[in-house]
């Protein structure tokens, strides 16, 4: 039986983390697991490395006391994103790490962290060329896609960029 006050998470390589359950109240995955299989020893978190899980848990710890209403949908347009200085660790992070955090936030279903990482990723895309974006996401991949049909619409987008 696991201690109801604490929860133990196991990453893909078997590293375990035991943290207060309250830290993870915004993770839908953990909440579902506690409800259905809370009597088991530890929860496996597949596809997440110890380094990333540690970072996610740090985020959860920082925000454990937050009283803001839980975010139902990370893309909710009625709840504008506001940068929080406590999350600056994510701003200095290399691109590939940030992507791993985005994935982990999605796996653990923490909408607040999904939104934070997605917003940070978007701000890094902002103003870049297709080549630069390709380098960010995937250094050694894929030929240029034939996107003729959208070039016209692209001009609409570029018009926008000019008049901004």
């Amino acid at each position: 039986m696991s201690d109801p006050a604490n929860i133990t998470l196991v990453t893909m390589d078997g590293t375990t983390f035991t943290v207060p359950s309250a830290y993870l109240h915004r993770s839908k995955l953990v909440q579902d697991w506690l409800r259905s299989e809370g009597d088991k020893q530890a929860m496996e978190v597949k596809h997440v490395t110890p380094f990333v899980l540690q970072g996610v848990l740090n985020f959860c710890e920082i925000h454990a006391e937050d009283t803001s209403e839980p975010l139902a949908d990370p893309a909710d347009p009625t709840k504008p994103f506001e940068a929080d200085p406590r999350d600056d660790a994510f701003r200095g992070m290399p691109d590939d790490q940030l992507l791993q955090f985005t994935m982990a936030a999605d796996i653990l279903q923490i909408p607040e962290l999904v939104r934070l990482t997605a917003q940070e990723m978007a701000s890094r895309i902002d103003g870049k060329s297709p080549d630069q974006i390709r380098a960010m996401f995937n250094p050694d991949d894929l030929a240029e896609e034939d996107v003729d049909s959208d070039n016209e619409m692209g001009e609409v987008g570029e018009e926008g960029a000019i008049s901004k």
Binding site: P74, A75, F81, T102, M103, D106, V114, R115, A118, Q119, M121, A122, S123, I125, D126, G127, K128, S129, P130, I133, R134, F137, N138, D141, L142, E144, E145, V147, D150, M153, G154, V156, G157, E158, G160, A161, K164
Partner: peptide
């Protein structure tokens, strides 16, 4: 679905750039 969440934060001009990155982005 994660790319979608990232793209939701982008202005139109950047979205257009993204359509030129690769097939998945497009």
């Amino acid at each position: 679905e994660l790319l979608t969440l990232i793209f939701e934060h982008l202005p139109q001009s950047d979205l257009h750039t993204c359509t030129k990155v690769d097939q998945l982005f497009h």
